[in-house]
């Protein structure tokens, strides 16, 4: 298993709230490797993959943020048409349900990386491995 830990943070949908959270991370020299923000009318859920998960969680919890850590799948695929479609087909065939996904900067300009949040990590991992899709470890991402 190469499951990568993603930190999710509850951020109110009000001016400056995201900036406050980012300032905390900045002050502790946390480097964000991947991020996405899902928003609703009242609040946003900030999803982060960072170079130091434990430290980031401690910092945010100390500042009274609601934080949760979930394991996600991270993949690296060639930067060419049809690649993501292929991955989704593989997952679909195995009956893996996708909650959300987002792209982030990869190792080189010839590849692109994705965070995939699914309902069944084990099943997704097996399917992607069988199809030869490169899966990234937390270490891989930290060193990017």
């Amino acid at each position: 298993m190469s499951n990568v830990r993603q930190i999710s943070v509850f951020v109110e949908n009000k001016p400056n709230k995201l900036a406050e959270a980012m300032k905390l991370l900045k002050n502790s020299k946390i480097n964000i490797r991947a991020m996405a923000l899902a928003d609703t009318k009242d609040f946003g859920i900030l999803r982060l993959i960072v170079n130091d998960t434990e430290k980031t969680v401690d910092i945010l919890k100390d500042a009274s943020y609601a934080v949760t850590v979930t394991e996600i799948v991270a993949i690296s695929i060639p930067d060419s048409p049809g690649q993501l479609s292929r991955v989704l087909d593989i997952l679909g065939e195995k009956g893996v349900n996708l909650e959300y996904l987002y792209a982030f900067i990869g190792k080189s300009d010839k590849s692109v990386s994705f965070v995939i949040r699914v309902d069944d990590n084990d099943n997704a991992y097996a399917a992607l491995t069988e199809a030869g899709i490169i899966q990234l470890t937390e270490n891989d991402i930290a060193e990017m």
Partner: peptide
């Protein structure tokens, strides 16, 4: 105030709480 123990990374879970 949300209960941190109920926080989920999924929007649909959070909207269900509301």
């Amino acid at each position: 105030e949300m209960n941190p123990d109920q926080f989920s990374d999924k929007v649909k879970d959070m909207q269900k709480l509301e």
